[in-house]
């Protein structure tokens, strides 16, 4: 399930579920989970079990990485906006200083 509404936080949902005694989702959508064929050997069964156990963790790690990147990107955008704004302020201030200087010096030989 993808949570996209800004008012919905995945961690908050998880806490709410725990508070309500609801079971945690067992893993990613079934379409992403390979349908296991009955394992023929003990080794195959162990590998399949490890895969099932690891899948939610891998998915969680992937989500966390994506979320961290989003925060970083938003911060960079904000910083870029701030720098552009400051550049514009500085440009106008310099132009004003220069215009004032020209007016101050205009009668000088």
């Amino acid at each position: 399930m993808t949570l996209t509404h800004p008012a919905i936080d995945a961690d908050a949902v998880a806490r709410l579920r725990r508070h309500l005694g609801r079971p945690e989702p067992v893993g990613p959508p079934s379409a992403l989970v390979p349908i296991a064929t009955p394992p023929a050997t003990l080794g195959d069964r162990a590998r399949a079990l490890a895969g099932r156990v690891a899948a939610p963790l891998v998915e969680r790690a992937r989500q966390e990485l994506a979320r961290a990147a989003e925060h970083e990107q938003a911060a960079l955008h904000a910083e870029l906006h701030a720098l552009r704004a400051e550049l514009d302020r500085t440009r106008t201030t310099h132009a004003a200083e220069l215009a004032a200087l020209h007016e101050q010096l205009r009668d000088r030989p």
């Binding site: 514009d88 106008t92 201030t93 004003a96 004032a100 200087l101 007016e103 101050q104 010096l105 205009r106």
Partner: peptide, 27 residues
């Protein structure tokens, strides 16, 4: 454009810095 006497030019700078935003400020 800024039109000023030599003695009053400086006082315009803070206000002109805002007023002139998005324009070309010149003497």
């Amino acid at each position: 454009a800024l039109a000023a006497t030599p003695t009053t030019a400086r006082r315009a700078v803070p206000f002109l810095s805002l007023l002139g935003r998005g324009t070309d400020v010149v003497s």
